[in-house]
Amino acid sequence: MIVLGRIVAPHGVRGGVKIHPFGDDPHSWSKMVYWWLGRNPDSSNEADWKAYKLESLRDQGKNLVASFDEVSDRNGAEALDGLFIAAPREYMPKPGLDEYYWDDLIGLAVLNTADVQLGVVQGLIETGAHDVLQLADGEGDAKVERLIPFVGAFIKSVDLTLREIRVEWEADW
């Protein structure tokens, strides 16, 4: 399952929910007939996710408002508050050239242009201006955490086959 966002509040009296999207093209999700809702974003077990049929999707500031066929009133929407939204990979739109799902980047090794391994991607942070890779290198007291902006000035290549990202970044930065 690829996590797309999170329901942050009910919206209105007809069962709408306000959604904080993870990613920069949430309108492409409107092509998916079903969205899967669940409590644990780390679960890949489809039994932990329940499919809801998307009825409508629209913008509301930086968030989205969605409604589902199965939810007809505010009480139903309140029951969904805090749930994560996900979809199986085969239902997701294909990313464009030089576009990646965050899920595809997590776990990739990050090496600089001098072949020094800087760590492994543990997560990403959405800052508004651009996304930032969160790296971890080492174990225990020797563990080093790094943050690298996910922008063309620093990211030289992403190779999903080799499971690595090449960056213009020094180990002591």
Rank of each mutant, 00 (worst) to 15 (best):
E145V: 05
H130D: 12
A109H: 11
D131Q: 07
V116A: 04
L135Q: 09
D103R: 14
D115E: 15
V121Q: 06
E139R: 12
A114I: 00
Q117F: 04
D141I: 10
P149H: 11
I155P: 02
L135Y: 07
Y101T: 01
A129S: 15
K156I: 09
D115A: 15
K143Y: 02
A142Y: 03
W102L: 09
P149V: 06
L135M: 08
L118C: 07
A114R: 09
L111E: 14
F154G: 03
I148M: 10
A129C: 01
I148R: 08
A153Y: 08
Q134Y: 08
D104M: 05
E145H: 11
G123V: 04
V151R: 15
T113M: 12
I148P: 08
L108V: 03
G140N: 12
I106N: 06
A129R: 12
R146D: 04
D141K: 14
I106Y: 05
L147Q: 11
L105R: 01
G107C: 08
F150M: 04
N112H: 01
D103T: 10
L108K: 02
G128A: 09
Q134H: 11
K156R: 15
K143P: 01
G128T: 04
F154H: 13
S157P: 02
E139G: 08
H130L: 03
L118E: 04
Q122C: 07
